[in-house]
Nucleic acid binder design. Structure first.
Length: 783
DNA sequence: TCATGCCAATTTTAGACAGCATGTC
DNA sequence: CTAAAATTGGCATGA
């Protein structure tokens, strides 16, 4: 199908696509148009990665906007949201505006209301529904990217429920779901009342094969010699082989440590092949990486990067991740070894994809579990860059002939698994049942069940009554914790009498049970709006209610760390003892009742939360990044993630404290502010001044400048002595509201000098300094 | 007595969304 | 039910 044949697009859109080098639609895209993509018809497109899924979405959204509507594009990751934003922003040429909204992106309701296309994460959309964003009812087109993630145990139910709610909100709305090729795309299409485009067509060929011994055997029967020399690893031989043809490679491994070790070895392969110019550019990139964070992980990464290789996993900071991804896309980096993060993330195609480890540690399986076919296919789908590579190659590694055969059977010739809804899992229902009640989607038990009937789970469920029984369990949990109220007919039907009840009576009971009204309490509304798991909220509320004296920062940090919304830090061997001791030392500070030591699992969780809590405490006591990452054996990305989550949870805890009229609201606020800025209590005022962070605040404080007012009155020499650079100092003074911030001709004072004329403050600050130093040492000694 | 080298036993193990209101070194 | 690499610990050896 030719671009000219398309109708209903905004004027200028066709020209834009032509400029992008698009003349003709790919077959699956043409199929989608035939199925009514540009006419507002519902559509499920199950096609491989990089075969033009976004174009299908774009055609649907642009035609919807041209008809006077508004479109929403739902993505699973923040990083993908900005990737799509960049892509859609080009439509501004012909007057179509795009806005993004995610947890960490600026966005007000009115601002979004003016945009034609809005990009958001599924959780953000869920949150918008809960908070009743007005523009949601104006949507005429919703695109859900990577819709197969409905299968994900943690985040799948959110997407599923959100799609169901959007459809209920706007019955006339067009739904376009984009999926990887999965086993049951037809089922998803049925659920969404959509037509299906199911295709494995790709714009460039993908050859799949297994490497064993010295040979690479492809699925079409062809073979390529790739000898493994000396003691080198298979992946090294494969990377070298394709590098000699000028192709880059992506190696998927099972753990972070494996990724780092492999990258370091592969640097030995790519390093010698680099041109002088590349070396210079890579050295600059390495400097940027070291600059971003001063940790062991960063140094290791920078060392690899200098030799044209890199590792990629969630321990990297987001800046480092994008630096690596961008450099790989620009072909500056020749090889990346990555954990499965990269397979689901932003677009990073390579000529050759090597899936080295096809088993991964999975605690729920009690050991190593094979990767899903879908997951491996997603990894392999990264092979081949349209327009740049003649073809893509995906290679699995086998160590024996038997394994080689197994890999062909298990992954290359196998169909991907079916997508199964995970909605009936209790944690998921807890959140979504409360949200559904709080936002008024359901006012009775019957109404709630009716809504749940519209989910994929209900359409797949084979076990009749399961959803209903879990829902009832969840409802009583929510009622027990004062999140909802059930009215009338609450009395449980007498189970013992069941045997004697007639069928008519049962039906009658059922009916009255369904008429039972459900209403969120004020607390319930708050929890739903804050986007908390009700169980997290309950934990926090109980913790705050039980506190008899002002909670310490550690107490609050441990409290939020033991909620299900905080991702757990894992206790390493020997640490159970270490944190057990710390627990007895600081037991009095912790909020709520500790589980008994004999409750193996729960006690361990409690200690793991204590570990996370001390990490946050260290951060709030101004330990630097390097100290913390080393002490807890984590990467910079993990630290920032933890701090981020804690900030969010403590913010929510503050709202909850206000809601239940807790007397500790201020303590919570202070603990949150300390985590946010990573500073001790005494610096909180200083960091509120623009341009002052944890490091500068500490230096100013040591020089005797203790609060914003001191910035206005202290001698300039002292301030300049504490801060390096005139420009910085001037900027800070201006932010502090000083009359004449100019630093012209001011000489920095060295050493600790009294900042104020009376000199008394210098004395106090010295004392505090000693205390802080002591504190740091004692906590260092603990580890 | 202490450093060194080797082998066996032990340890470790992926990921990242969300409120609200604005800006680090 | 399943793996693999790195680290640690124990022991023998040699100076």
């Amino acid at each position: 199908m030719n671009l000219e044949e398309l109708s209903g697009l905004p004027p200028g859109a066709t020209d834009h696509f032509r400029q992008e080098g698009i003349e003709e639609l790919y077959p699956p895209q043409a199929e989608a148009v035939d199925a009514g993509a540009t006419d507002g018809e519902n559509l499920v497109a199950a096609v491989p990665t990089a075969s033009g899924k976004t174009m299908i979405a774009a055609l649907a959204m642009l035609s919807a906007v041209e008809r006077g509507g508004k479109a929403l594009y739902i993505v699973p990751l923040r990083a993908l949201a900005s990737e799509k934003r960049d892509e859609f922003e080009a439509y501004e040429q012909f007057g179509i505006t795009t806005g993004v909204t995610t947890g960490n992106y600026e966005s007000t309701d009115d601002w979004l209301a003016t945009k034609d296309i809005i990009v958001a994460t599924s959780e953000k959309v869920d949150s918008l529904v809960r908070n009743g964003a007005g523009w949601l009812s104006e949507l005429t087109c919703v695109v859900s990217d990577e819709v197969h993630l409905i299968d994900d145990r943690n985040r799948g139910p959110t997407l599923e429920v959100t799609l169901a709610k959007l459809q209920q909100l706007n019955p006339a709305m067009q739904t376009v779901a984009l999926s990887a090729t999965v086993g049951n795309a037809d089922e998803i299409a049925d659920w969404l009342d959509a037509s299906l485009v199911d295709s494995d067509w790709r714009p460039i060929d993908l050859e799949m094969g297994v490497h064993y011994g010295n040979a690479l055997n492809f699925d079409d029967g062809s073979t390529r010699e790739v000898p493994v020399e000396g003691s080198e690893k298979q992946e090294a031989a494969l990377v070298r082989d394709i590098l000699q043809e000028g192709g880059s490679s992506l190696v998927f491994v099972s753990s972070r440590r494996n990724a780092e070790a492999a990258a370091s070895r592969l640097g030995g392969v790519s390093g010698p092949e680099l041109s002088g110019e590349e070396r210079t550019e890579l050295a600059e990139l390495a400097a940027e990486i070291r600059d971003d964070s001063d940790t062991e992980t960063s140094k290791d990464l920078a060392d690899c990067v200098e030799r044209g290789a890199a590792f990629h996993h969630a321990g990297l900071s987001s800046t480092q991740r994008s630096l690596v991804e961008d450099a790989f896309r620009d072909r500056l980096l020749k090889v990346i070894s990555a954990t499965p993060t990269l397979a689901a993330g932003v677009n990073t195609p390579a000529r050759r994809v090597i899936v080295r480890d096809w088993r991964r540690f999975d605690p729920s399986a009690g050991g190593m579990a094979p990767l899903d076919v879908l997951e491996v296919h997603q990894m392999m789908g990264r092979a081949g860059r349209p327009g740049l590579d003649p073809y893509g190659e995906a290679v699995l590694l086998a160590k024996s002939h038997d394994e080689s055969q197994e890999l062909f059977d298990r992954y290359i010739w196998a169909d991907p698994e079916a997508v199964r809804s995970k909605l009936a899992a209790e944690p998921a229902l807890r959140t979504h049942v409360l949200a559904t009640i709080a936002s008024g989607f359901a006012r009775t038990r019957g109404g709630l069940l009716e809504f749940l009937e519209a989910t994929l789970y209900a359409s797949q469920s084979s076990e009749a009554g399961r959803l209903e029984s879990v829902t009832d369990e969840v409802l009583s949990y929510l009622e027990r914790n004062d999140f909802i109220e059930r009215d009338g007919k609450t009395e449980q039907t007498n189970d013992d009498a069941g045997a004697f009840t007639s069928a008519a009576d049962l039906a009658d009971q059922q009916r009255s049970k369904n008429e039972q009204t459900l209403e969120a309490t004020s607390l319930g509304h708050t929890v739903s709006r804050l986007y908390l798991d009700p169980m997290s909220a309950a934990e926090i509320v109980h913790g705050l209610e039980g506190a008899e004296e002002r909670p310490t920062a550690l107490g609050l940090y441990q409290l939020v760390s033991r909620t299900p919304d905080m991702y757990e830090l894992y206790l390493r061997s020997g640490e159970d003892e270490k944190f057990g001791e710390l627990f007895y030392e600081r037991e009095r500070e912790l909020l709520g009742d500790a589980p008994s030591e004999f409750e193996e699992g729960r006690f361990e969780d409690w200690l793991a939360a204590l570990k996370t809590g001390t990490l946050l405490e260290d951060w709030a006591e101004e330990a630097d990044e390097e100290t913390i990452t080393e002490r807890y054996k984590i990467g910079p990305g993990d630290l920032r993630g933890k701090v981020d989550t804690a900030e969010w949870l403590l913010g929510a805890a503050e709202s909850l404290a206000a809601e239940i009229d807790s007397e500790w609201t201020v303590a919570v606020r202070e603990a949150r502010a300390r985590v946010e800025h990573g500073v001790g209590e005494e610096l909180l005022e200083l960091v509120s001044v623009g341009g002052v962070g944890r490091k500068r605040a500490r230096r100013l404080y040591e020089a005797g400048v203790e609060e914003p007012a001191d910035l206005r009155s202290a001698e300039k020499e002292v301030i300049l002595g504490a801060l390096k650079g005139e420009k910085t100092a001037e900027n800070i003074l201006e932010n502090a509201g000083r009359e004449n911030p100019s630093m012209d001709g001011v000489e920095p004072a060295s050493g600790v000098v009294s900042a104020t004329s009376d000199g008394s403050k210098a004395g106090t600050s010295d004392e505090t300094n000693e205390e802080t130093a002591d504190d740091n040492q004692s906590s260092l000694g603990d580890f």
